[in-house]
């Protein structure tokens, strides 16, 4: 689909468009994205996806990292509940994401910027809908530019003692 003019939705987009980092599980949602491709379902070119084996692998740090490095939103997608290739990784992602969204809200990130969705390997259309809906939501919320806010809380170059604690030396 032709690129939208996002500044019409929110003037703060002037000069750029939303960037969403996606974490897609290898078995369901990554294949749903493949299917969207083979079916030629168009969706906004806002998603930049990263394949992980299972949403259970999703370290909350990845989400924070993506937001910190300039993403306006993060979309995590896995297999539907009950259909996880690894039995229950998606349930673990569900719990982690709930907690993460609450934590991020306290750090000034609107919970809608970090979303969890499901799509089976046969649901290219659902994948497309999810990305489109998320893009619309992010467009409304405007750019995040979180690194400016977060620099004080999590400095890019940690102080030596934090390094020490973090690495258990």
């Amino acid at each position: 689909m032709p690129e939208k003019n996002y500044s019409e939705i929110n003037p703060a987009w002037e000069g750029r468009k939303p960037v969403i980092v996606g974490f897609l599980c290898n078995w369901c949602s990554y294949r749903a994205a493949d299917l969207a491709g083979t079916s030629r379902f168009g969706y906004p070119a806002t998603l930049r996806d990263i394949r992980i084996m299972c949403t259970g692998r999703l370290d909350p740090t990845f989400v924070i990292k993506a937001l910190r490095e300039g993403a306006d939103g993060v979309l995590v997608m896995g297999c539907h509940p009950h259909q996880c290739h690894y039995d229950e990784g998606n349930y673990k992602a569900m719990r982690r994401m709930a907690l993460l969204r609450r934590t991020l809200a306290q750090l000034g990130v609107h919970p809608d910027r970090v979303q969890l969705g499901w799509a089976s390997a046969a649901q290219g259309a659902l994948f497309t809908e999810t990305v489109t809906a998320m893009t619309e939501r992010i467009a409304e919320l405007g750019p995040l530019e979180w690194r400016d806010t977060i620099e004080d809380i999590a400095p890019r170059t940690p102080s030596p003692e934090i390094e020490e604690v973090a690495h258990g030396k």
């Binding site: 980092v21 990263i50 084996m53 259970g56 692998r57 370290d59 990292k65 290739h85």
Partner: peptide, 29 residues
């Protein structure tokens, strides 16, 4: 190799081969 334990380890001492912490962090960048 689902990686659930990798993401959950509070000491970050479990590594998921081929989908390591560093490889995903680098890919995000």
């Amino acid at each position: 190799g689902c990686g659930t334990c990798v993401a959950a380890c509070p000491s970050q001492v479990i590594e998921g081969q081929h989908f390591t912490f560093d490889s995903i962090m680098a890919q995000i960048e």
